[in-house]
């Protein structure tokens, strides 16, 4: 599973990121990389069986605390 994820991410880096990197727009490169690493780390963590906190219960509790229900 993690192997496949890594392959897919690698493919994206190769095909998608390299042209952007050559575009020499620093801001975009950093933005790209940070989003990329964020999502990669999340998938790897999930692949290792770590329970990440989902935003859904948080949003739900906020709405419930507003007392609409």
């Amino acid at each position: 599973m993690i192997l496949i994820m890594t392959l897919v991410y690698g493919l994206f880096l190769l095909l998608d990121f390299i042209p952007i990197y050559r575009g020499k727009n620093r801001k975009i490169t950093w933005l790209y990389l940070s989003l990329f690493i964020l999502s990669y780390s999340m998938t790897v963590l999930i692949g290792f069986g770590v329970n990440l906190p989902s935003p859904a219960p948080l949003i739900k509790s906020i709405i419930t605390s507003l007392g609409i229900f």
Partner: peptide, 18 residues
């Protein structure tokens, strides 16, 4: 060199996905 890397990578992807 970039193209080499691509061509090496593609079979790997194919094995798993295609």
């Amino acid at each position: 060199r970039k193209n080499y890397a691509k061509f090496l990578f593609l079979p790997l992807i194919m094995i798993f996905l295609i």
